Computed example of a mutant assay.
Amino acid sequence: MTRIAVLGSTNMDLVAFVRRAPRLGETVTGREFRTVPGGKGANQAVAAARAGAEVSMIGAVGSDDFGARLRAGLADAGVDTGLLRTVDCPSGTAHIVVDDDGGNAIVVVPGANATVTALSPDDEARIAASDALLLQLELPLAAVIAGAEAARRHGVRTVLTPAPAQPLPHELLALTDLLVPNEHEAAELTGVADPRTAAEELLRDVPEVVVTLGAAGALYAARGARPVTVPARRARAVDTTAAGDTFVGALAVALGEGRPVPDALTWASAAASLSVRRAGASSSMPYRAEIDAL
C-alpha cells in the first residue's frame, strides 16, 4: 500500500449556495448553507485515503468544536491524525460561495494553521517513512520548506500544489519533485497564459509538472520528455470545490503504485470528475471502487 504524508491545512468550510455570487457591495439571498470539513491539506489527505493509500496528516486544529469535528472527519476517512496538533486558538475556516454553475469564490482564515511553523522529530520520522509528501501553501511557508527539506533528506517524493498562488522561493522549487498548479496558478507563476508554454517555463525549476485544466483535462510535462495531455471525464458540475485536491490525492496514489503517467492522470481525472458531481469538499471525494468503475 502506498504511504502518503500530508503537511497542510485543515479548515472548516462554511459554504453558502447561491444562484450567482454577489458583486462587490451587493447582498444576495442564498438557498442553502452547510459546514463541511475541508482545507487543502485535509482534502488531499481524505482523497488519497479514499483512493487506497495509508495516509498521515501533519498540521493543526483549534481547541474549538470545529477542531473536534475536523479531527473526527479525518479519522472517519481513515487518515492517521496522531500528528495533527490541537492548539489553543480557533480552527481555520474557509468561507465559500458556490453558484448554480458550480463555480466558487473562497476566503480562507488560517486560524490554527498559522501556528504550524516547524516540524517536530515525529513529523520528520513520519515523512521519512512515506512514499510521498503532499504540500500546499495554506500553512506558513517556513513549515512548507521544512517539510520539503525533510522529504529530500530521506529520498521521499515531494508533490507541491502552489495554492493559494504566490511567488515561490527558489529553495522550495529546488526541493519539489512534482509541481501541480491549475492553469491559473501556472499563469500567475510564469506570467504566461498558455498552459503548455507555462509548463515548459516551470520545468526550468522543477523536474515534473502537471497543469490541471478543469474541464479540458490535465497536461503533464517532464524534462527530456514529450508532454502528455489527458482529457477530463464529462460531468455536470454541482460544486467544483476541492476537485483539484481530489485530483492530487488520487494522482499521488496512482504514481505511488507505479502506474504509467498517462494511466495515473486518467485515474486522477476520473476521481476529480466524480467529486464535482457532489456538493462539498471532503464530502464529495470518491472511494477507490468508484474511481475504478468510472
Rank of each mutant, 00 (worst) to 15 (best):
L135N: 07
R71S: 12
P286Q: 03
G39I: 02
G73Q: 08
L24Q: 13
A193V: 14
P140K: 06
Y287W: 13
D292R: 08
F66D: 15
D263E: 15
L133W: 03
L179Q: 08
G59I: 05
D123I: 09
L202D: 10
G102V: 05
T190Y: 07
A48Q: 05
V159L: 14
G62Y: 02
T29G: 10
A72L: 09
T115A: 13
A143K: 04
R259M: 12
D239C: 13
G78T: 08
A94D: 07
R20F: 11
L83F: 00
P262E: 11
A114E: 14
T161P: 00
L251S: 08
D245K: 00
S269L: 08
R31K: 13
L119M: 03
G67Y: 01
V206W: 03
Q136R: 10
L189R: 06
E208F: 02
T212N: 05
L84S: 07
V6A: 01
L219V: 04
A270P: 04
E138K: 12
F17N: 11
D100H: 13
Y220Q: 02
G38K: 00
A289W: 04
A75P: 02
E257Y: 01
R19G: 15
L119R: 02
P110G: 09
A150F: 02
R157Y: 01
G214K: 04
L74D: 14
A72S: 15
R23E: 14
R234D: 13
R277N: 01
W267S: 02
D194L: 07
T10L: 15
L265I: 06
R204I: 03
D99T: 07
E208K: 03
R50F: 01
R226M: 13
T93G: 05
Q166S: 10
E188D: 11
V55Q: 07
G8L: 06
T35M: 15
L179W: 03
P286I: 13
V18Y: 06
L139K: 10
D292Y: 00
A21R: 14
R157V: 15
S9H: 01
D245S: 08
S275R: 09
V79I: 06
L135W: 06
L219N: 00
L213A: 06
L74F: 05
G25T: 09
L251D: 03
A215I: 12
R152L: 13
L175H: 10
V276F: 06
A21D: 02
R223Q: 13
T240G: 05
E201P: 02
P22H: 02
L294W: 03
R233M: 15
T197G: 10
A174Y: 01
V107H: 01
L83P: 04
L119D: 12
F247V: 06
V192L: 14
H95V: 05
S269A: 15
T2Y: 00
P169E: 09
H170D: 15
L84C: 07
L189E: 14
R69C: 06
L135E: 11
V28G: 11
V238M: 03
R223K: 11
V46L: 01
V210A: 09
V209P: 07
R234W: 12
L14P: 05
A193I: 03
L137S: 06
G217F: 11
A225F: 08
T115L: 15
G256D: 11
L83H: 12
P121H: 01
G258V: 12
P167Q: 01
R69D: 13
P121W: 03
R226S: 15
